[in-house]
Nucleic acid binder design. Structure first.
Lengths: 194, 194
DNA sequence: GTATTCGAATACTGATTAGTATCTGGATAC
DNA sequence: GTATCCAGATACTAATCAGTATTCGAATAC
């Protein structure tokens, strides 16, 4: 069970464990409430491991963002705009209330705020969001050539809907039901056939 | 010029100056990067003034949120849905790139994150957003009775658009032009006459 | 006019924590 | 098999900062 690992393999495992632990704790407690000792302990390591792998706390944060790049596996294309909207809605509905998604959302906002004030974290974060928009723009452009909006703007609006509804719902789930997202989707993509 | 103030008047001035300074610094540097000494100094006071007016840093933060309640002056009603959409778009366009709006947006996200993890800040924040949604829902309901969405859901979607586009644009203004907001508005409220 | 009250200033403390210096043990090179 | 190397552990430091204890002075009360 316990494999014999080479040095580089071992270090890759260590790095990944530290990044996972940091991302989780950032979501649960916030970046500034999370100490490096805390991250290391959650990963079953010590601060020495962090400084052997990252230059500083800021570098660790930037590394979390850089890991996101190219980490999203592409979805299978939908059959129609309406089918796509349906899938987006279903995915959202099944995700919003899962605790790990909540954690992810909180960590995202933490990282956004950090990135807004830190040069080295900002670029990968911006790139990540761009790649999300690009993927959706490509999908939309393939499904219809009479989109209600230019594909890239549509993608930005859809991402805005996701982010904006999530922020409101996380704060006050009773005031902002999940249907707000699906209703918004329909309003934007057009009320397609049934 | 320098008025002679009674004790309660003076204290009200002090309180307001502290809240202003705190909100500004939270936007510029973030809540956890802002020390109480820094807030007091920015207000031309000392930490003593803070603890004479607020029980703790958390209380000061909650007070910022509570001050938002009932602080928004109501807008004059629009003539039509299309006119309303036009005004929302114009307001947004003229606001997004102003530095004090940027600061406000950053402070909002800081406070959101804080509120998500702190009971006493969460309630006033949720109430504030609710009051924003309510105002827009009322306006929309008065302008049309064939809205594309139920008024309360529409209001939540519009707020989501504002928040979501702003977060993306603040991070990467070149990738997300202001037109994304107005385009989204049109897509949601329907492409009205000219 | 004097006594009292209390908002704000000053001075201090304890706890936290990013970062550093040093050490160690097991994997690598030869 | 021995020497070397280096990922990670351990121990420490310096700085920051929320909160407290005390003092001060100007506005109230009488």
């Amino acid at each position: 069970m316990t494999e014999r690992l080479t040095r580089v393999q071992q270090q890759a495992v260590t790095r990944a464990r530290l990044l996972d632990a940091a991302e989780t704790l950032f979501g649960d407690r916030g970046i500034h409430q999370t100490s490096l000792d805390g991250i290391a302990a959650a990963a079953g390591l010590t601060k020495g491991a962090i400084y052997a792998n990252f230059g500083s706390k800021g570098d660790l944060i930037a590394a979390i963002l850089e890991r996101k790049l190219g980490a999203d596996e592409p979805e299978p294309p939908s059959a129609s705009l309406a089918a796509w909207a349906g899938r987006l809605g279903d995915t959202y509905e099944s995700a919003v209330d899962r605790p790990e998604i909540r954690r992810f959302a909180l960590a995202f906002v933490e990282l956004w705020l950090y990135g807004m004030r830190d040069g080295s974290a900002r670029a990968p974060l911006a790139q990540w969001l761009q790649s999300v928009r690009d993927a959706n723009a490509r999908e939309a452009a393939e499904l219809a050539d009479d989109l209600p909006l230019p594909a890239d703007q549509l993608a930005a609006v859809l991402l805005a809907l996701d982010i904006g509804v999530s922020l409101q719902r996380l704060l006050d789930p009773r005031a902002v039901p999940v249907e707000v997202y699906t209703a918004g989707l329909k309003a934007i993509l057009g009320r397609g056939p049934a």
